[in-house]
Design a protein around this nucleic acid. Structure first.
Length: 115
DNA sequence: GGGTTGACCACGA
DNA sequence: ATCGTGGCCAACC
């Protein structure tokens, strides 16, 4: 009756409050696998319950979103997060445009989920 | 049933 | 400071 790691990941992601974002590593750690951040992305890619699991609230350690992300468009994701109160910062505000999602990154300093 | 890959992160040089 | 490799777990072929 051990719940699969992926199942636990979904549970953690589901707990992420609105206006907050969690990193894959953080979700992985909360799921019980601090070194399995990779699988977290896999589990979310599986997205067994679309609409229930806010995968868009899960971002990279850098604060950038996953490349190849497909909710309908990366720009949609930015709007979704902004709509929830997540603060985005342009690459100009931060040295390093080598980030995904048009270079827009989430301000983890303010919006990273504090479990 | 076994091998490989995968929305990553941390450490070593 | 940056670049490269390892590691973790599970699903896919």
């Amino acid at each position: 009756m051990v719940e699969s790691f992926s199942q636990r990941v979904y549970d953690v992601v589901r707990r992420i409050p609105e206006g907050k974002v969690a990193t894959y590593g953080q979700v992985a750690a909360l799921a019980g696998a601090p070194r399995s951040a990779r699988f977290v992305g896999f589990a979310l890619h599986s997205n067994p319950e679309p609409g229930v699991i806010p995968c868009h609230r899960v971002v990279f350690r850098d604060g950038s979103l996953a490349p190849g992300f497909a909710f309908g468009g990366p720009e949609v994701q930015r709007e979704l997060l902004e709509n929830e109160g997540v603060v985005f910062v342009p690459p100009s505000e931060s040295a390093g445009e080598a980030a995904g999602a048009d270079g827009w990154r989430v301000d983890l300093r303010r919006c990273q989920w504090d479990a």
